[in-house]
């Protein structure tokens, strides 16, 4: 009986410790940033965070990379981050509507082009092959930015490949993924032949796995990445934001396939 009671107390003490640890996970000074970033920003954000050492060194940031919409919903639901970077403004509007930030707080941080990516073993060698029956196309769902951009790109391409192009490609779609990295993963693994992703997603990929098909100038879609500092952020977050948008970060953005 005695032991049992002790066990019970021990259990709840542990519970309290865990709870209070959760509550205090955002102490100032020597902690790193906690960043909510669009799936395609994952790698570049890690690099930017590593390059940003002013005003003082801090541990590496904790990144939550997911679909922009899912992250926006998490923030509205009370998830706490220092900074939110989304792949388009639609996701941002959700947290503006929830009065967490104002529209004036949202700034453009980078651009990336939508690109068609094909598995190197597939028969897809030119854009028109997307519409060939039997081609396994994977896109992002239109609830996430990459999906919306992909549909815009397909619509633009009807000007070159004919009015049915977008419809035909959509008929070849075998999966609508929840984020752009899942699209790439399906192509990379060879399960899908071809998908639409951002230049940034494939910048660091070896050529022998996938090949990219560039959408001709004038028909492409340029994704606009926007970010905002969230309320009660880490004291250094505004400086980090400045750094991301400054000249010092340009080469980092470019090496990851973005346009700064």
């Amino acid at each position: 009986m005695q032991r049992r009671r002790m066990f019970r107390w021990g259990g709840s003490a542990l519970g309290m410790a865990v709870l209070s640890a959760c509550g205090q996970s955002r102490i100032s000074a020597a902690t790193g940033f906690s960043l909510a970033v669009a799936a395609s920003l994952n790698d570049v954000m890690r690099a930017l965070d590593a390059a940003f050492i002013q005003p003082k060194p801090r541990p590496a940031a904790v990144l939550q990379a997911a679909g922009s919409g899912a992250l926006a919903q998490q923030i509205v639901d009370g998830a706490r981050f220092d900074l939110f970077a989304a792949a388009d403004r639609t996701a941002m509007e959700k947290i503006i509507a929830a009065k967490i930030v104002s529209a004036a707080d949202v700034v453009v941080i980078a651009h990336a082009d939508v690109v068609v990516v094909a598995h190197s073993d597939s028969d897809v060698v030119q854009l028109s092959d997307l519409a060939t029956p039997g081609t396994r196309v994977v896109l992002a769902d239109s609830t996430v930015p990459a999906g919306r951009y992909a549909q815009t790109a397909l619509t633009n391409l009807t000007a070159i490949y004919g009015a049915d192009f977008a419809t035909n490609v959509n008929q070849n779609v075998v999966s609508l993924e929840t984020n752009v990295r899942a699209v790439l993963q399906k192509v990379q693994s060879g399960e899908a032949d071809v998908g639409l992703v951002y230049t940034a997603d494939i910048a660091k990929l070896p050529d022998n796995i996938v090949r990219s098909l560039v959408i001709p100038e004038g028909y492409g879609v340029r994704a606009e990445y926007v970010a905002t500092v969230l309320p009660n952020a880490h004291g250094d977050t505004p400086a980090f934001m400045e750094f991301m948008r400054g000249d010092g970060a340009t080469t980092i953005w470019q090496s990851y396939g973005f346009r700064a």
């Binding site: 994977v138 769902d141 779609v173 075998v174 999966s175 609508l176 993924e177 929840t178 899942a182 399906k186 399960e191």
Partner: peptide, 10 residues
């Protein structure tokens, strides 16, 4: 999600 993808109606 990993093995079957996510296609409405399929």
């Amino acid at each position: 999600a990993i093995f079957a993808g996510s296609m409405p109606g399929q």
